[in-house]
């Protein structure tokens, strides 16, 4: 098993158009490193100066990682990770 990561339209240029990709890691940070090794350039779009980009939201099993440790959030096989750009509501 691996960790399934949903990629938003805007970042699929890095994944050859794939909507979901698989990766591995113990934390969100190491998972992103693994994804970047497979899909070059992805990390640069998600992380700036060691933190998640202001307009990028990442959810592990639907919970916003900014409330669970950000890049240090623990992840494990079978988790579902969703990446989304920040959009307005209201």
């Amino acid at each position: 098993m691996a960790i399934e990561v949903r990629i938003p339209t805007i970042l699929r240029t890095h994944t050859g158009g794939a909507k979901t990709v698989q990766g591995s890691g113990d934390t969100l940070g190491t998972l992103i490193d693994d994804l970047d090794a497979q899909h070059s350039g992805l990390k640069g779009r998600l992380v700036t100066e060691g933190a998640l980009h202001r307009f990028v939201n990442v959810y592990v099993n639907d919970e916003d990682v900014r409330f669970t440790g950000a890049l240090d959030t623990a992840v494990k096989d079978g988790d579902a990770v969703t990446i989304l750009p920040a959009v307005a509501g209201g």
């Binding site: 938003p8 339209t9 805007i10 779009r45 980009h53 202001r54 307009f55 990028v56 916003d64 969703t82 989304l84 750009p85 920040a86 959009v87 307005a88 509501g89 209201g90």
Partner: peptide
Amino acid sequence: EPRYGELVYGLRNIDEGFVP
């Protein structure tokens, strides 16, 4: 937070994102 279909997240680049 509602998660919509993909169309709604169709920004041209991440820097067009929005946080109130």
